[in-house]
Design a protein around this nucleic acid. Structure first.
Lengths: 142, 142
DNA sequence: ATTATATATTATAATTATTCTAAACTGTTG
DNA sequence: CAACAGTTTAGAATAATTATAATATATAAT
Protein backbone atom coordinates (compact mmCIF):
# COMPACT_ATOMS: atom_id res chain seq x y z
CA UNK A 1 0.00 0.00 0.00
CA UNK A 2 2.20 2.78 -1.29
CA UNK A 3 -0.40 5.48 -0.65
CA UNK A 4 -0.29 4.64 3.01
CA UNK A 5 3.48 4.95 3.05
CA UNK A 6 3.17 8.29 1.35
CA UNK A 7 0.76 9.54 4.01
CA UNK A 8 2.94 8.10 6.75
CA UNK A 9 5.88 10.05 5.41
CA UNK A 10 3.82 13.21 5.01
CA UNK A 11 2.57 13.06 8.57
CA UNK A 12 5.92 12.19 10.06
CA UNK A 13 7.67 14.97 8.16
CA UNK A 14 5.36 17.51 9.77
CA UNK A 15 5.73 16.14 13.26
CA UNK A 16 2.43 14.27 13.37
CA UNK A 17 2.45 10.66 14.42
CA UNK A 18 1.05 8.45 11.70
CA UNK A 19 -1.69 6.84 13.76
CA UNK A 20 -4.31 4.52 12.35
CA UNK A 21 -7.01 7.20 12.57
CA UNK A 22 -4.93 9.89 10.91
CA UNK A 23 -3.99 7.58 8.07
CA UNK A 24 -7.64 6.67 7.51
CA UNK A 25 -8.58 10.35 7.46
CA UNK A 26 -5.76 11.03 5.00
CA UNK A 27 -7.16 8.33 2.75
CA UNK A 28 -10.62 9.84 2.78
CA UNK A 29 -9.35 13.39 2.29
CA UNK A 30 -6.39 13.15 -0.01
CA UNK A 31 -6.96 9.98 -2.03
CA UNK A 32 -8.92 11.80 -4.73
CA UNK A 33 -8.12 13.75 -7.86
CA UNK A 34 -10.54 16.63 -7.37
CA UNK A 35 -10.50 19.30 -4.69
CA UNK A 36 -12.71 18.27 -1.81
CA UNK A 37 -14.89 20.68 0.13
CA UNK A 38 -16.42 19.41 3.34
CA UNK A 39 -17.75 20.21 6.76
CA UNK A 40 -16.47 18.24 9.72
CA UNK A 41 -19.85 16.58 10.04
CA UNK A 42 -19.83 15.51 6.39
CA UNK A 43 -16.37 14.09 6.86
CA UNK A 44 -17.33 12.15 9.96
CA UNK A 45 -20.28 10.65 8.06
CA UNK A 46 -18.12 9.84 5.04
CA UNK A 47 -15.65 8.06 7.26
CA UNK A 48 -18.21 5.84 8.94
CA UNK A 49 -19.68 5.02 5.51
CA UNK A 50 -16.41 4.29 3.72
CA UNK A 51 -14.71 2.47 6.56
CA UNK A 52 -16.00 -0.35 8.67
CA UNK A 53 -14.65 1.16 11.87
CA UNK A 54 -15.72 4.36 13.60
CA UNK A 55 -13.51 7.28 14.45
CA UNK A 56 -14.55 9.42 17.39
CA UNK A 57 -15.93 12.83 16.41
CA UNK A 58 -13.45 14.50 18.75
CA UNK A 59 -10.63 12.83 16.85
CA UNK A 60 -12.02 14.05 13.54
CA UNK A 61 -12.08 17.59 14.93
CA UNK A 62 -8.56 17.24 16.31
CA UNK A 63 -7.19 15.77 13.11
CA UNK A 64 -8.82 18.29 10.79
CA UNK A 65 -7.50 21.14 12.90
CA UNK A 66 -4.07 19.55 13.08
CA UNK A 67 -4.07 19.18 9.28
CA UNK A 68 -5.21 22.76 8.90
CA UNK A 69 -2.44 24.00 11.19
CA UNK A 70 0.11 22.05 9.19
CA UNK A 71 -1.22 23.61 5.99
CA UNK A 72 -2.83 20.49 4.51
CA UNK A 73 -6.31 21.99 4.73
CA UNK A 74 -7.78 25.43 4.42
CA UNK A 75 -10.78 26.74 6.34
CA UNK A 76 -13.47 28.65 4.46
CA UNK A 77 -16.33 30.61 6.00
CA UNK A 78 -19.28 31.18 3.74
CA UNK A 79 -22.25 31.39 6.03
CA UNK A 80 -22.87 31.18 9.70
CA UNK A 81 -24.33 27.68 9.83
CA UNK A 82 -21.72 25.81 7.82
CA UNK A 83 -17.99 25.85 8.23
CA UNK A 84 -16.09 24.35 5.31
CA UNK A 85 -12.64 22.95 4.82
CA UNK A 86 -10.91 22.68 1.47
CA UNK A 87 -8.17 20.31 0.36
CA UNK A 88 -7.00 22.99 -2.05
CA UNK A 89 -4.81 25.08 0.23
CA UNK A 90 -3.67 27.62 -2.33
CA UNK A 91 -5.22 31.07 -2.27
CA UNK A 92 -8.12 30.81 -4.70
CA UNK A 93 -11.68 31.90 -5.38
CA UNK A 94 -15.04 30.21 -4.99
CA UNK A 95 -18.52 29.95 -6.30
CA UNK A 96 -21.07 29.24 -3.60
CA UNK A 97 -24.31 27.72 -4.86
CA UNK A 98 -26.99 29.01 -2.52
CA UNK A 99 -29.49 26.43 -3.78
CA UNK A 100 -27.43 23.41 -2.86
CA UNK A 101 -24.94 24.88 -0.33
CA UNK A 102 -22.20 23.60 -2.60
CA UNK A 103 -18.79 25.21 -2.79
CA UNK A 104 -16.97 25.18 -6.13
CA UNK A 105 -13.39 26.26 -6.83
CA UNK A 106 -12.81 28.95 -9.44
CA UNK A 107 -10.07 28.73 -11.99
CA UNK A 108 -8.23 31.76 -13.39
CA UNK A 109 -10.47 31.59 -16.44
CA UNK A 110 -13.40 32.51 -14.25
CA UNK A 111 -12.02 35.40 -12.26
CA UNK A 112 -8.69 37.11 -11.81
CA UNK A 113 -7.39 38.00 -8.38
CA UNK A 114 -8.18 41.70 -8.00
CA UNK A 115 -5.41 44.21 -7.38
CA UNK A 116 -5.41 45.97 -4.05
CA UNK A 117 -4.58 49.63 -4.59
CA UNK A 118 -4.35 50.74 -0.97
CA UNK A 119 -3.51 48.76 2.10
CA UNK A 120 -3.95 49.44 5.78
CA UNK A 121 -0.87 51.08 7.28
CA UNK A 122 1.53 48.70 8.96
CA UNK A 123 -0.30 45.58 7.84
CA UNK A 124 0.61 42.84 5.42
CA UNK A 125 -1.90 41.33 3.01
CA UNK A 126 -2.18 37.64 3.75
CA UNK A 127 -4.87 36.71 1.27
CA UNK A 128 -7.23 38.16 -1.33
CA UNK A 129 -10.17 35.94 -2.11
CA UNK A 130 -13.31 36.38 -4.16
CA UNK A 131 -16.58 34.74 -3.27
CA UNK A 132 -19.29 34.57 -5.94
CA UNK A 133 -22.73 33.65 -4.64
CA UNK A 134 -25.04 32.13 -7.24
CA UNK A 135 -28.56 30.72 -7.24
CA UNK A 136 -31.25 29.77 -9.68
CA UNK A 137 -32.68 32.81 -11.37
CA UNK A 138 -36.42 32.46 -10.87
CA UNK A 139 -37.20 35.54 -12.92
CA UNK A 140 -35.50 34.23 -15.96
CA UNK A 141 -35.67 30.50 -15.94
CA UNK A 142 -35.71 28.33 -19.02
CA UNK B 1 -38.27 62.95 18.15
CA UNK B 2 -38.11 62.88 14.36
CA UNK B 3 -35.59 60.02 14.18
CA UNK B 4 -38.04 57.81 15.99
CA UNK B 5 -40.81 58.71 13.55
CA UNK B 6 -38.45 57.91 10.71
CA UNK B 7 -37.72 54.48 12.14
CA UNK B 8 -41.42 53.94 12.85
CA UNK B 9 -42.20 54.65 9.22
CA UNK B 10 -39.34 52.46 8.01
CA UNK B 11 -40.47 49.51 10.10
CA UNK B 12 -44.12 49.91 9.27
CA UNK B 13 -43.44 50.20 5.54
CA UNK B 14 -41.74 46.81 5.61
CA UNK B 15 -44.47 45.12 7.57
CA UNK B 16 -42.71 45.16 10.92
CA UNK B 17 -44.56 46.53 13.91
CA UNK B 18 -42.67 49.44 15.43
CA UNK B 19 -42.35 48.08 18.93
CA UNK B 20 -40.39 49.76 21.70
CA UNK B 21 -37.59 47.18 21.42
CA UNK B 22 -37.27 47.43 17.66
CA UNK B 23 -37.13 51.21 17.78
CA UNK B 24 -34.38 51.08 20.40
CA UNK B 25 -32.42 48.65 18.27
CA UNK B 26 -32.90 50.90 15.24
CA UNK B 27 -31.47 53.78 17.26
CA UNK B 28 -28.40 51.81 18.23
CA UNK B 29 -27.87 50.44 14.72
CA UNK B 30 -28.84 53.19 12.33
CA UNK B 31 -28.30 56.41 14.27
CA UNK B 32 -24.69 56.71 13.18
CA UNK B 33 -22.82 58.10 10.20
CA UNK B 34 -20.30 55.30 9.72
CA UNK B 35 -20.97 51.73 8.68
CA UNK B 36 -21.34 49.56 11.73
CA UNK B 37 -20.02 46.00 11.94
CA UNK B 38 -21.12 43.93 14.88
CA UNK B 39 -21.82 40.50 16.28
CA UNK B 40 -25.15 39.87 17.99
CA UNK B 41 -23.35 39.63 21.31
CA UNK B 42 -21.65 42.99 20.79
CA UNK B 43 -24.98 44.51 19.93
CA UNK B 44 -26.70 43.08 23.01
CA UNK B 45 -23.91 44.50 25.17
CA UNK B 46 -24.07 47.88 23.44
CA UNK B 47 -27.79 48.01 24.04
CA UNK B 48 -27.57 47.33 27.75
CA UNK B 49 -24.81 49.94 28.04
CA UNK B 50 -26.49 52.68 26.03
CA UNK B 51 -29.99 52.16 27.33
CA UNK B 52 -31.18 51.90 30.90
CA UNK B 53 -33.53 49.04 30.08
CA UNK B 54 -32.65 45.53 28.98
CA UNK B 55 -33.82 43.79 25.84
CA UNK B 56 -33.96 40.01 25.92
CA UNK B 57 -31.21 38.29 23.92
CA UNK B 58 -33.86 36.30 22.05
CA UNK B 59 -35.43 39.56 20.92
CA UNK B 60 -32.09 40.87 19.73
CA UNK B 61 -31.65 37.71 17.66
CA UNK B 62 -35.19 37.93 16.31
CA UNK B 63 -34.87 41.59 15.46
CA UNK B 64 -31.48 41.35 13.80
CA UNK B 65 -32.72 38.48 11.66
CA UNK B 66 -35.92 40.34 10.83
CA UNK B 67 -33.87 43.38 9.80
CA UNK B 68 -31.59 41.18 7.73
CA UNK B 69 -34.55 39.57 5.97
CA UNK B 70 -35.98 42.99 5.18
CA UNK B 71 -32.63 44.04 3.74
CA UNK B 72 -31.62 46.50 6.47
CA UNK B 73 -28.65 44.42 7.52
CA UNK B 74 -26.22 42.14 5.76
CA UNK B 75 -24.65 39.03 7.24
CA UNK B 76 -20.93 38.47 6.78
CA UNK B 77 -18.98 35.31 7.56
CA UNK B 78 -15.27 35.75 7.98
CA UNK B 79 -14.27 33.03 10.37
CA UNK B 80 -15.97 30.21 12.12
CA UNK B 81 -16.11 31.70 15.57
CA UNK B 82 -17.55 35.13 14.80
CA UNK B 83 -20.62 35.96 12.77
CA UNK B 84 -20.86 39.61 11.77
CA UNK B 85 -23.63 41.85 10.59
CA UNK B 86 -23.11 45.02 8.60
CA UNK B 87 -25.30 48.10 8.33
CA UNK B 88 -23.90 48.63 4.85
CA UNK B 89 -26.18 46.37 2.82
CA UNK B 90 -24.72 47.15 -0.60
CA UNK B 91 -22.46 44.55 -2.20
CA UNK B 92 -18.99 45.63 -1.13
CA UNK B 93 -15.56 44.40 -0.14
CA UNK B 94 -13.78 44.07 3.19
CA UNK B 95 -10.50 44.11 4.94
CA UNK B 96 -10.33 41.74 7.87
CA UNK B 97 -7.66 42.55 10.41
CA UNK B 98 -6.57 39.22 11.81
CA UNK B 99 -4.76 40.88 14.71
CA UNK B 100 -7.82 42.64 16.10
CA UNK B 101 -10.68 40.69 14.45
CA UNK B 102 -11.85 43.99 13.03
CA UNK B 103 -13.82 44.24 9.81
CA UNK B 104 -13.29 47.30 7.62
CA UNK B 105 -15.26 48.29 4.52
CA UNK B 106 -13.33 48.81 1.28
CA UNK B 107 -14.02 51.69 -1.02
CA UNK B 108 -13.65 51.51 -4.82
CA UNK B 109 -10.27 53.21 -4.45
CA UNK B 110 -9.02 50.13 -2.66
CA UNK B 111 -10.27 47.38 -4.91
CA UNK B 112 -12.49 47.08 -7.94
CA UNK B 113 -15.16 44.40 -8.15
CA UNK B 114 -13.61 41.69 -10.32
CA UNK B 115 -15.28 40.64 -13.54
CA UNK B 116 -16.62 37.11 -13.72
CA UNK B 117 -15.80 35.63 -17.10
CA UNK B 118 -17.69 32.37 -16.81
CA UNK B 119 -20.70 31.50 -14.74
CA UNK B 120 -22.28 28.24 -13.69
CA UNK B 121 -24.94 27.12 -16.15
CA UNK B 122 -28.46 28.08 -15.16
CA UNK B 123 -27.41 30.16 -12.20
CA UNK B 124 -27.58 33.86 -11.55
CA UNK B 125 -24.77 35.76 -9.83
CA UNK B 126 -26.15 37.28 -6.66
CA UNK B 127 -22.98 38.82 -5.29
CA UNK B 128 -19.27 39.12 -5.91
CA UNK B 129 -17.28 40.07 -2.86
CA UNK B 130 -13.60 40.34 -2.10
CA UNK B 131 -12.15 39.62 1.31
CA UNK B 132 -8.64 40.86 2.07
CA UNK B 133 -7.09 39.38 5.18
CA UNK B 134 -4.34 41.47 6.74
CA UNK B 135 -2.13 41.20 9.80
CA UNK B 136 1.01 42.74 11.21
CA UNK B 137 4.03 41.73 9.19
CA UNK B 138 6.44 40.39 11.79
CA UNK B 139 9.23 39.83 9.27
CA UNK B 140 9.27 43.41 8.25
CA UNK B 141 8.18 45.55 11.12
CA UNK B 142 9.36 49.08 11.73
C1' DA C 1 -62.33 54.48 23.82
C1' DT C 2 -62.82 49.40 24.22
C1' DT C 3 -62.31 45.11 22.66
C1' DA C 4 -60.53 41.51 19.69
C1' DT C 5 -56.78 39.80 17.05
C1' DA C 6 -52.54 38.85 15.53
C1' DT C 7 -47.93 39.58 16.45
C1' DA C 8 -43.92 40.40 19.57
C1' DT C 9 -41.38 39.79 23.78
C1' DT C 10 -39.56 37.25 27.31
C1' DA C 11 -37.41 33.73 30.29
C1' DT C 12 -36.30 29.43 29.92
C1' DA C 13 -35.57 25.04 27.74
C1' DA C 14 -33.74 22.68 23.82
C1' DT C 15 -30.57 22.12 20.23
C1' DT C 16 -26.35 22.25 17.81
C1' DA C 17 -21.56 22.76 17.07
C1' DT C 18 -17.40 22.68 19.13
C1' DT C 19 -13.98 22.19 22.84
C1' DC C 20 -12.39 20.17 27.17
C1' DT C 21 -11.16 16.39 30.23
C1' DA C 22 -9.14 12.56 32.04
C1' DA C 23 -8.53 7.80 31.47
C1' DA C 24 -7.03 4.27 28.36
C1' DC C 25 -4.22 3.34 24.49
C1' DT C 26 -0.46 3.39 20.98
C1' DG C 27 3.64 4.85 18.39
C1' DT C 28 8.33 5.78 19.04
C1' DT C 29 12.79 5.82 21.23
C1' DG C 30 16.42 3.80 23.63
C1' DC D 1 10.42 -4.73 25.44
C1' DA D 2 9.99 -0.97 28.75
C1' DA D 3 9.02 3.74 29.34
C1' DC D 4 7.35 7.97 27.81
C1' DA D 5 5.08 11.30 25.30
C1' DG D 6 1.58 11.97 22.24
C1' DT D 7 -3.14 10.35 20.73
C1' DT D 8 -7.72 8.64 20.99
C1' DT D 9 -11.94 8.25 23.11
C1' DA D 10 -16.53 8.85 25.37
C1' DG D 11 -18.70 11.81 27.68
C1' DA D 12 -19.02 16.29 30.08
C1' DA D 13 -18.79 21.20 29.46
C1' DT D 14 -19.39 25.31 26.92
C1' DA D 15 -21.10 28.60 23.62
C1' DA D 16 -24.07 30.14 20.13
C1' DT D 17 -28.40 29.95 18.39
C1' DT D 18 -33.25 28.50 18.01
C1' DA D 19 -37.68 26.80 19.89
C1' DT D 20 -41.41 27.14 23.24
C1' DA D 21 -45.18 28.79 25.52
C1' DA D 22 -46.93 32.20 28.57
C1' DT D 23 -47.49 37.06 28.83
C1' DA D 24 -47.66 41.57 26.83
C1' DT D 25 -48.43 44.87 23.16
C1' DA D 26 -49.76 47.09 18.72
C1' DT D 27 -53.22 47.55 15.51
C1' DA D 28 -57.83 46.97 13.58
C1' DA D 29 -62.55 46.62 14.29
C1' DT D 30 -66.31 47.92 16.94
Amino acid sequence: MSKNLEFTYKLRSSGLRPTRQRLKICEVLFNRDKTFHFTINDLAKDISKQLNEKISLATVYNTVHAFKNKGYLKEISINSDKNYFDTNTTSHHHFFDQDTNELIDCTDEVVETPKIKKNILGKKINSVEVLIKVATDNQNQK
